[in-house]
Design a protein around this nucleic acid. Structure first.
Length: 488
RNA sequence: GUCCCCAUCGUCUAGAGGUUAGGACAGCGGGUUUUCAUCCCGCCAACAGGAGUUCGAUUCUCCUUGGGGAUACCA
């Protein structure tokens, strides 16, 4: 069987971790089986739709680095791939169900529904949801009222008795008593647009989708989707319900857990490789004894059987670790290009960096690569390479071991030695400093500390000699001089 | 409330009747190191509980408990 899967986001918000995970799993399944991955825009909620979200969708996936074989932008044999452009189709199919007696017009207004809900909440009755008030209306009369312009929705008739069963490739057989299925869900809204339920069944069928892979939150609507397929006389696709992604508190991942929009991760300086690698492993495993999987390997290794049933908690710390791993795997030039925008944002380099800036930043990469957790750490970590740090407070020079006078003495010695050293010869430079430390009866680290603070503005910094080699001995000397003066 | 799904270290997971229950992140402790980081080594840490089935259950069944999800003219 030719596998065809789809990612069907609703452009009513920014692309977030949960939906991207669904997209990724669908994509990997398609790739692993030589199938087709389809993007379909489910823009049927006209009240929440925004073109900005469509743009965000495209930006997100371009950044993440995986793409669809068919979709609104690339086209395909089942176009259009935007549901608002398929409006007529849903109308026709809804009519089909009404005419077949599988669905009916409902004229209940918002007020009636709200009252119903209030009454149900107040009572101890187990009944919840629509009371099927219009189900018994005469179809002909109903049709006349609609023809006369009365507002109506179309509802699906859920059988009053019996049960509906389906097979899920991860969860196995699932059976629902029809009395527990949502009572007659709306298929066509009063604005004429379909609900997700109608649109997704019609399109999945028309687009020959073979596997529907979506989060477990959809399980409760699966039974009436099955009812709908039967009403149309269609063969339903394979159902695959993916484990939910939870926040650290065990609830469905949402904004209140921190960053959840892919855009936020991008702005924080996460690498798409890290995000993809990490997210692919939420509720899914690939191969034992290994943690780092490039996208190509995920595509090759993915198996439905390796999908988990239990929900997974999103662990920001582990994602951070992945990010560090992928940063360290970058070549200097590539990392430089990734870091440049972050430096530009802080004004350390021009928006369009000069060749000199580019090569300067390139040569600084070895100093920061293994220290960066996020690309966004770069400006703070590298600022001293671009400009003299503010004069450090005297306490910065003084440690448990060094008092002010001793710190000043070591700083002076360290600075003095600088001009005598060839900074392009690191081992030799270090040897000279070690000898100097010994001569002064100090530890090597103690000799380095005050100089480090003077030059970098901090007790913690990338390697000192390499840093000085980058900014130049003159600049380092100038900073040391100022610091020395401040120490009196 | 009702229905549904789920259940191995704190977290992500491996395990598919017999294992010292493995790995990763985090945590803790060491080592390397010019600070930090990287890197290396070690430690801590789990089969929710109870009945069955079986010679033998983490693994199969049932119950309990716990967690999550759904209960919209949103997806």
């Amino acid at each position: 069987m030719q596998v065809r899967v789809r990612y069907a986001p609703s452009p009513t918000g920014l692309q977030h971790i949960g939906s991207v995970r669904t997209a990724l799993i669908n994509y990997l399944f398609a790739r692993a089986n030589g199938g087709t991955f389809v993007l379909r825009l489910e823009d049927t909620d006209r009240t929440r739709f925004s073109e900005d979200y469509v743009k965000n969708l495209y930006d997100t996936f371009e950044w993440l680095g995986f793409y669809w074989d068919e979709g609104p932008d690339v086209g395909g044999p089942y176009a259009p791939y935007i549901q608002s452009e398929r409006f007529q189709l849903y109308q026709e199919h809804a009519m089909r169900l009404v005419e077949a007696g599988a669905a009916y017009y409902c004229f209940c207004g918002e007020e009636r529904l709200a009252g119903l809900r209030a009454a149900q909440e107040g009572s101890d009755s187990a009944d919840l949801g629509y009371d099927r008030h219009c189900r018994g209306l005469d179809p002909r009369e109903a049709a006349d009222r609609v023809a006369a312009g009365e507002k109506a929705v179309v509802r699906l008739k859920i059988p009053l008795e019996g049960s509906t069963k389906f097979h899920d490739l991860v969860l196995g057989d699932i059976e629902w008593k029809n009395e527990d299925v949502s009572p007659d869900p709306v298929l066509l809204k009063s604005d004429g647009f379909p609900t997700y339920h109608l649109a997704n069944i019609v399109d999945d069928h028309l687009m020959r989708i073979t596997h529907v892979m979506r989060a477990q939150e959809w399980i409760p609507s699966a039974p009436f989707h099955i009812v709908m397929y039967a009403a149309f006389g269609w063969e339903p696709p394979q159902l695959v319900h993916l484990p939910m992604v939870l926040g650290p508190d065990g609830h469905k991942l949402s904004k209140r857990h921190g960053a959840t929009a892919v855009d936020e991760f991008r702005k924080k300086g996460y690498l798409p490789e890290a995000l993809v690698n990490y997210v692919s492993h939420l509720g899914c495993s690939f191969e034992e004894g290994r943690d780092l999987f490039p996208l190509a390997d995920l595509e090759r290794l993915f198996k439905i059987e390796r999908l988990n049933k239990a929900p997974a908690v999103f662990d920001y710390q582990k994602l951070e670790w992945y990010n560090g791993q992928y940063i360290r795997m970058k070549g200097d030039a590539e990392l430089r290009d990734l870091v440049l925008p972050f430096l530009a944002q802080e004004g350390l380099v021009a928006e369009a960096p000069s060749e000199a800036q580019r090569s300067f930043v390139l040569s600084a990469m070895p100093l920061v690569k293994e220290r960066l957790k996020f690309l966004s750490d770069a400006p703070a970590m590298m600022r001293y390479l671009f400009e003299a740090p503010p004069l450090p407070a005297a306490e910065e020079f003084i440690s448990k071991k060094l008092d002010k006078a001793r710190a000043a003495e070591l700083l002076a010695a360290g600075a003095a030695l600088l001009s005598a050293c060839d900074l392009s010869d690191l081992p030799a430079t270090e040897a000279r400093y070690r000898a100097e430390a010994e001569r002064l009866g100090a530890k090597f680290g103690d000799l380095m500390a005050p100089l480090r603070v003077a030059v970098t503005g901090s007790r913690v910094s990338p390697p000192l000699f390499e840093s000085i080699a980058l900014i130049g001995a003159d600049e380092a000397l100038a900073r040391a001089g100022k610091a020395l003066a401040s120490l009196g």
